[in-house]
């Protein structure tokens, strides 16, 4: 098993935080993990990517061009990640794309604030990866809580995580 996740967003959206938590949860699930952040020299606002690989064996190379999951969080990221968004692979179900835009209705209905968008998608990912036994979704939440529960907006973030999970459950039904 080698599972590849690419998360793409804008700097400041929390791409690297999501990647850090997922990687750690998989590591604690006794998987081999490689996570390499990728961004330019901007402090904020540039495209920010995270390449995550999770496997049962050693991972030899930190980057990849064919993700199994692609998470898109902004217009700029969609542009930057075009290279990885192979229509044929989507059609063949080799690539699943989770685009923030596709969740717009839920995000509006549940009043998920922009600063929690990454946490919402983390909720979605936690469930997807949990189902594949790549990491435990409870572990993802536990690590999230450890990392940001002392910071402002925790109630909103907690709600966003749960909404992400629910939303995915509804969709997969």
């Amino acid at each position: 098993m080698l599972f590849k996740i690419l998360i793409a967003g804008d700097g400041g959206q929390g791409v690297q935080t999501m990647a850090e938590i997922i990687s750690k949860a998989a590591f604690q699930n006794n998987k081999h993990v490689s996570f390499v952040p990728n961004y330019g020299l901007e402090q904020r606002g540039g495209a920010s990517l995270a390449f995550i690989q999770i496997s049962d064996r050693d991972i030899v190379y930190p980057k990849f061009s064919k993700p199994d999951i692609l998470v898109l969080m902004s217009e700029q990221a969609r542009e930057r990640a075009k290279l990885y968004c192979d229509e044929l692979r989507i059609e063949n179900k080799e690539l699943r794309v989770y685009n923030l835009n596709d969740f717009a209705a839920t995000i509006e209905a549940q009043n998920i604030k922009p600063f929690s968008h990454n946490i919402f998608l983390l909720g979605v990912l936690a469930l997807v990866l949990g189902q594949k036994e790549i990491c435990e979704k409870e572990k993802v939440f536990e690590l999230l809580e450890k990392k940001i529960s002392q910071k402002p907006g925790w109630e909103d973030n907690k709600k966003a995580f749960a909404a992400g999970e629910d939303c995915f459950l509804m969709a997969s039904r």
Partner: peptide, 9 residues
């Protein structure tokens, strides 16, 4: 930069 920034085992 890839190897220095890679988080792994």
């Amino acid at each position: 930069g890839y190897l220095l920034k890679t988080k792994g085992i």
